[in-house]
């Protein structure tokens, strides 16, 4: 499916040239344009300023703009590369590129490590893992006793913390993920491959913007 460059269309603040973004990512120019349609939709869902804010991100993920979630917060913070509280278009495309089926596994492993390194210490600590397990249980409305959570975390650490220093470093993480590839399942979005075929309406809309 072809697409027409949208040079004449009005763009939101933080807009970047699709040819530049395509050159830096696994997306084609057409796919970047299709992503721009998705971005516009998300960034106009509440504040209509062309920037994705936390509430808009939560609305898209949970159909509820007030739904706080530790993991959505972490994803939002990693997408917000400039750390200014909003996701701009270029940040959106570059970050989603990590989830592209053609992106090397090493990049996905590194992204997942950053995601779980809650306090940016360069390690995944036992307390962080426990906090994440409790957050997941809370989100799912499940209750497990502290003892059970402790067993789950302990068992995971016994497998992942091969150096036995009580924390998981990037090398240990890489090794652990290679033994448990299912852990990276949510780091790949099949939708991102040939976006314009999966979302033909986005491509059509980008042409109508002309």
């Amino acid at each position: 499916m072809g697409c027409i460059p949208t040079k004449l269309a009005k763009h939101t603040p933080g807009y970047e040239d699709p040819t530049v973004l395509a050159s830096e990512t696994s997306f084609s120019v057409c796919e970047v344009e299709a992503l721009y349609e998705l971005f516009k939709k998300l960034s106009h869902s509440i504040f209509k300023d062309g920037l994705i804010r936390k509430e808009e991100f939560q609305l898209a993920l949970f159909k509820n703009s007030k739904r706080k979630n530790l993991f959505a917060d972490r994803i939002f913070d990693l997408f917000d590369i400039k750390r200014n509280g909003v996701i701009e278009f270029g940040e959106f495309v570059r970050s989603l590129n990590v989830f592209h089926p053609d992106t090397p596994t090493e990049e996905k492993i590194a992204f997942a490590f950053k995601l779980y390194d809650l306090r940016h210490t360069g390690y995944i600590e036992r307390e962080e893992l426990k906090e994440m397990v409790f957050a997941l249980l809370d989100e799912s409305g499940l209750h497990l006793s502290d003892d059970v959570v402790e067993v789950i975390v302990e068992k995971t650490f016994s497998q992942a913390d091969s150096k036995g220093d009580g924390r998981i470093d990037p090398d240990e993480w890489k090794e652990f993920v290679s033994q448990n590839p299912a852990l990276l399942k949510n780091m790949t979005l099949p939708y991102l491959k040939d976006m314009t075929m999966v979302f033909p309406s986005f491509a059509v809309n980008s042409e109508l913007d002309e």
């Binding site: 998300l42 898209a60 448990n180 299912a182």
Partner: peptide, 25 residues
């Protein structure tokens, strides 16, 4: 058998990590 689960496997099920939802919005 939740105790048999890998903690990372458990947390990877979070809806907050399921970005496919961005496309359904």
């Amino acid at each position: 058998q939740p105790a048999a689960m890998n903690a990372f496997e458990l947390i990877s099920m979070s809806k907050g990590l399921n970005l496919a939802n961005l496309f359904d919005s």
